[in-house]
Design a protein around this nucleic acid. Structure first.
Length: 674
DNA sequence: CGCATTCTAAACAGAA
DNA sequence: CTTCTGTTTAGAATGC
């Protein structure tokens, strides 16, 4: 959004002094945004804008949350202690003092949570007076809130772990891993946020929390309600779990700072050493471990030399972070500390629930993601604010490229989001120049095919370089040649963005045509036309392609491979997101296989020169593309010019050399000419 | 830091 | 003379 406006500034700016200044500004935005979404740059620059939606909310809400709860907690402190004492006195006459003191100190909280669960309401009533009950209720609620937060932290860790594990199993590339991490983190935040809201809502419903709707409501208000209420999980960990909680410290530092509540909790917990015997009573609900605990660890079980519960020299058992020098020691520790006993069983159960919960969440989230993607993808084809007029008039009036959409309308653009590579396009694209896709040899064609409606109508700068755009324009014609003016027309026809600032980009186009060897000027009967020398074009690719933009890569890989497991990916594959699932995005070679489509498919039906693009080139539907992509498993670094049309060379990756023969031969004379 | 790439701006020349 | 086309240079931003 910010980028958008920034770009607008530039565009509207006559080009004078504003030019450089604002450009640098955009560049920052663009580049940073590119890395963006994830990068710290984004945060620093404009935390409130884009990337924050996930990251920012949680802390903010937590803050509210804490502020809200603080008074309550304090007010209840006395009652709580009283209750605790009572509870302990009742349920644990003192036989297990020693044991209690150990766990009690750390987890007095859980006690309060537990006790009610272990005692039936009737029992409670008998034991406690109404005021006490009320106090207990409130106390519970307060504690729940606290523990909720603790749980979120835990959950975050777990999820992260899970994702990392998944990606490892998937043999992801390092770079992709980065993307995964980022995405995972975002999802964690998202998830946490959701859970928080969910719980808040629950609590509200119960009248336990008097949260103002505004506080509880966020962008993700209508969350799918998870089946399992995890509220009671953390306490188990804490209660049964290990002594220290360094793990949480590390989490705290991650931005989702819960210190506020944490300290509160500890200060609460510290004083009273009281605490009923939770350990024994806690597990009574001894529901048979229906699901075997190994479910979650099974995903790990990989290298014999390591242990899924052992990493970085410490025990990864939930709540336990005991340091173990080596695997042997760890095994020993595992056998002694985490033997098959009530506690371990309970913890396993907890972990199971956590996993289940996460899975549910994951399912929900992926579902939502699909819906979002589907929605965004459909968008362009749907009636848009300024689509109608622009689409038509633009095509007709492009000769000049001066279709001045009402300057005002152009600026906002907001309603639309670039589908497909949405964020990448938006951020990196912006007015900035970080064109992403052109580095992937030419997903441009596919991306364009998918989103051309979008770019056509939205005043968004396409995330492609001028060179790639020019090339695309030329290749889209049957004879692969265009006059300069036709190139101009193509630009204006295909991109709303290029209907303004004509002087600038036209200059750029000319500049690019002259500058790049890949563009060959050919004298023609009716003047000069420009063609593309694929060989040259490809020549300059290699160096770049290897270092394709990390951002885009991350985004894509993260999106498609990171947080979503295979099944979800499969689902995605069927959804309208060919690009994200296209192996080509990770493998330029196969991506290139898409390009040909634009040649043959577009070329045939569309009359090139007649210009007046009144005819929107019949493009392949996304599904078709995705199909293509899936079918095409051509990792070979095929040239983007392996046209599907001529069935001549089925698998002919080896001769990737001059795939352009046809063209090149035709073009040869021209090449010489120039 | 250096290099490569890209974008923008601008000067300039030749042709229409 | 103006406009279009094409070439070239320069500066800035960005990523590797």
């Amino acid at each position: 959004m910010m980028v958008e406006s920034a770009s607008e500034t530039i565009r509207s700016a006559p080009a004078g002094q504003n030019g450089v200044g604002s450009i640098s500004g955009q560049a920052d935005g663009g580049g940073g945004a590119g890395a963006a979404g994830a990068g710290g740059g984004g945060a620093g620059r404009d935390p409130a804008a884009g990337a924050d939606s996930n990251g920012e909310m949680s802390p903010a809400e937590l803050l509210h949350f804490q502020q809200q709860q603080a008074p309550v907690l304090q007010a209840l402190q006395v009652a709580r202690q009283l209750l605790l004492q009572q509870a302990s006195g009742l349920s644990s006459p003192g036989n297990n003092d020693s044991k209690q003191s150990a766990s009690a100190v750390q987890v007095p909280v859980s006690v309060a949570m537990m006790s009610p669960q272990m005692l039936t309401p009737q029992q409670m009533q008998q034991i406690l007076s109404p005021p006490q009950l009320q106090a207990l209720l409130q106390q519970q609620q307060a504690l729940m809130l606290q523990q909720l937060q603790e749980y979120y932290k835990k959950q975050q860790e777990q999820l992260h772990l899970q994702l990392l594990t998944q990606q490892q199993a998937g043999k992801q590339q390092p770079k992709e891993a980065l993307g995964n991490k980022q995405l995972a983190f975002q999802q964690q935040l998202l998830q946490m946020q959701q859970l928080q809201q969910q719980h808040l809502l629950n609590l509200q419903r119960q009248g336990l929390v008097s949260l103002q709707p505004s506080q509880a409501s966020g962008p993700l208000q209508t969350l799918p309600q998870a089946a399992v209420c995890p509220t009671d999980l953390p306490q188990l960990w804490k209660g049964e779990g290990a002594p220290g909680q360094p793990a949480e410290d590390s989490v705290k530092q991650e931005g989702l700072d819960l210190t506020g509540s944490a300290t509160t909790a500890t200060s609460f917990a510290a004083p009273p050493k009281v605490s009923p015997p939770l350990s024994h009573h806690t597990l009574p609900n001894g529901q048979p471990t229906v699901l075997t605990p190994r479910r979650d660890s099974s995903s790990h079980e990989e290298t014999p030399g390591s242990h899924p519960l052992y990493g970085h020299g410490e025990c990864k058992w939930p709540g336990c972070e005991t340091l173990c020098e080596d695997l042997g020691q760890f095994i020993k520790h595992l056998n002694t500390e985490h033997a098959l006993d009530d506690r371990s069983t309970a913890q396993c159960r907890v972990q199971m629930q956590v996993v289940q919960q996460l899975e549910i969440q994951l399912a929900k989230e992926s579902e939502r993601l699909q819906a979002m993607m589907a929605h965004l993808h459909m968008r362009p084809s749907e009636p848009k604010p300024f689509s109608q007029p622009v689409t038509v008039s633009a095509a007709d009036s492009f000769p000049d490229g001066l279709v001045h959409p009402p300057t005002s309308a152009a600026a906002p653009v907001t309603p639309l989001r670039p589908p497909g590579l949405s964020s990448a396009s938006l951020h990196s694209g912006g007015p900035a120049r970080r064109r992403s896709s052109d580095k992937f040899c030419s997903p441009i064609s596919s991306e364009l095919a998918q989103n051309h409606e979008f770019y056509k109508n939205a005043d968004v700068r396409p995330p492609f370089t001028y060179a790639s755009l020019i090339r695309q324009a030329i290749l889209e014609t049957p004879d692969r040649q265009l006059t300069l003016n036709e190139i101009y027309n193509w630009f204006t026809r295909m991109f709303a963005y290029f209907r303004r600032n004509t002087a600038t980009w036209k200059n750029a186009v000319r500049h690019n045509l002259s500058l790049h060897k890949c563009f060959v000027r050919v004298e023609n009967v009716k003047g000069a036309v420009w063609t593309v020398d694929e060989r040259e074009y490809q020549k300059r690719r290699p160096p770049k392609m290897t270092g394709s933009p990390t951002l885009v890569k991350n985004m894509i890989s993260g999106l498609s491979y990171g947080a979503l497991n295979a099944s979800y990916q499969a689902a995605l594959a069927e959804s309208s997101f060919p690009l994200l699932n296209s192996p080509g995005m990770l493998n330029p070679g196969s991506a290139s296989s898409l390009l040909p489509l634009s040649h043959d498919e577009v070329g045939a039906p569309v009359e090139p020169l007649p210009s007046n693009g009144s005819s929107s080139p019949p493009r392949l539907s996304p599904s078709q593309y995705s199909h293509q992509v899936q079918v095409k498993e051509e990792p070979a670094e095929a040239e983007e010019d392996r046209r599907p049309g001529p069935p001549l060379g089925p698998p002919n990756p080896s001769t990737a050399g001059p795939p352009e023969d046809r063209d090149l031969e035709e073009e040869l004379p021209g090449e010489e000419l120039s």
